[in-house]
Amino acid sequence: MKCLVAIKQVIDPYVTIRIKADNSAVETNNVKMAMNPFDEIAIEEAVRQKEAGKITEIIAISIGTTACQETLRQALARGADQAILIETNEQFGPLQIAKILTKIAQQQNPQLFILGKQAIDDDCNQTGQMLAGLLNWAQGTFVSELEIDDSTKATVVREVDGGLETLRLTLPAVITTDLRLNEPRYISLPNVMQAKRKTLQVIPLDDLGLNLCNNIKTLQVTPPHARKSGVKVTSVPELIDKLKNEAKVI
C-alpha cells in the first residue's frame, strides 16, 4: 500500500514571530524554519504503519521554494522512502495547494494520503478536507488513532469537540493528524546520513499544467490587540473581590 504525506515548511514554532514594518506579512527572511508540527506527526504515523507492515512505500511531498528541500530531507530522515518538491516561488492558499496535491495523487495512486490537520502559520485547517473533496475520497480529519483494516478499509478515531468519534473509511482516503496520534521520534544521525542518499525529485510547478488562481488576498497583517497591563493582588480574598466586583466574571 502506497502512502503520500504532505509536508509544509513553517516558521519554527518556538520562534517569536515578527510582523514586517509595512504590515504586509509576517517576516520569514532569516528566520529559523521547521517542519509543521502536525506534519511531523503525519510522517511519523506513515512510518509506524510501514513498520507494522500495513504500508509498503512512503512518499513525502512539499510545495514551495528550493529551501523546502531541507524540510523534505528531514521527512526522509524520519523514514519516508522518497520525496517530491513541487517548486514554486509563489504563495498559495489551501485550495490551490489541494489542487496541486490532487494532481500528484492522480499520478501516484496511493491508498492513503496523510496531512497535518493544520499548518501553524496560517491556521487554515482546510487542505486535507479540500483534497478529499477534489479526489472524491473519504476523509478522516483530526485523527488520534489510525488502524488500517485491510486494503479497502481503515478505522479512525477522530478528536471532535466533546469526545472521540470512530469512523470506518473506504480506501483510498485522506487522513489529517491531531496531536494525540503519536509522538514523533528523535531523528538519529545514521538516519540523517541515509536520508542524503534517498531520491528527492524536484518538479517545477509549471510542469503540472495547472491553472491556479487565488481569489483570497491578505490586505494586511497586524499585531493582536495588546492587553492592558494588569494588577498584582496580594491575597485570595482580594482576588475574589476583583473577579466578582470589578471584572464581574464570577
Binding site: D122, T218, Q220
Partner: peptide, 9 residues
C-alpha cells in the same frame, strides 16, 4: 494567524 500572534485582514 500564528495562533493569534498576528491578525490577518
Amino acid at each position: 494567524i500564528y495562533a493569534g500572534n498576528a491578525l490577518a485582514t
